[in-house]
């Protein structure tokens, strides 16, 4: 066996072990887009609650009106749907470009491990919302989203784990500062996504 053969043999093994166990068609660009949607959503939400003025120092607004809550809910839902939509679309495109199948054992495992904490968190948030605990929504959504990312990271890029851990820490900090939910929400879903998406895009997409 020649030197070159040996090396290609070993690298093909490594490549296959990696490729078979991990889903690597996740698009970085979709992370950036999700971040932008979230920032727009947070800004719209901010206007709903505080009106069109920028003040973080003195606040006498409380979210209590039914109408505002419904509007916030719709904004959050729109952000979620848009983010998921562009995420799926861009990932499909990236997979097609790399000639990879999107529906393979690793993507199935990825989706399953992600959906357990996400669905749990989603249900809990809905329950809390109906019971009127609005203050817990921002920290809890960040924490459950972070947990979902950490779980999913076993089946995709290692970087996803770090994004997840950051989201969890941010969620815990947000729990310490009630009333600033929208700010933490904007940082977690907006800023972090944009940073993470850019890193992924330049690291893997090109």
């Amino acid at each position: 066996m020649e030197d070159k053969d040996l090396y290609t043999e070993l690298s093909s093994i490594r490549n296959l072990m990696e490729r078979s166990a991990k889903f690597i068609s996740l698009s970085g660009l979709s992370g950036i887009l999700a971040g932008i949607y979230a920032l727009i959503g947070a800004w719209l939400g901010y206007i709903q609650v505080y009106g069109n003025r920028l003040t973080l120092s003195y606040r006498d607004n409380y979210i209590s009106e039914e109408e505002i809550i419904v509007r916030l809910f719709i904004i959050a839902l729109a952000v979620l749907v848009l983010s998921l939509g562009s995420g799926i679309l861009l990932t499909l495109r990236k997979a097609a470009r790399k000639k990879q199948n999107v529906w393979n054992p690793s993507s199935k495992k990825l989706l399953f491990s992600m959906s357990v904490p996400l669905l749990t968190g989603g249900c809990l948030l809905l329950i809390l919302m109906f019971r009127g605990y609005y203050g817990i929504i921002a920290p809890a959504s960040l924490i459950f989203y972070g947990l979902a990312l950490v779980a999913a990271s076993n089946y995709t890029f290692e970087d996803v784990k770090w994004l997840g851990i950051m989201e969890i820490i941010l969620g815990l900090v947000a729990a310490l500062f009630p009333g600033y939910g929208i700010v933490f929400w904007a940082i977690g879903f907006g800023l972090l996504h944009i940073i993470y998406g850019s890193i992924m895009h330049f690291k893997y997409d090109r």
């Binding site: 043999e9 093909s12 093994i13 296959l16 072990m17 990696e18 078979s20 166990a21 054992p105």
Partner: peptide, 14 residues
Amino acid sequence: LQVMSILVANENYD
């Protein structure tokens, strides 16, 4: 060898 490397890295594969 490639089949084996995939099966070692994953619980199972179809």
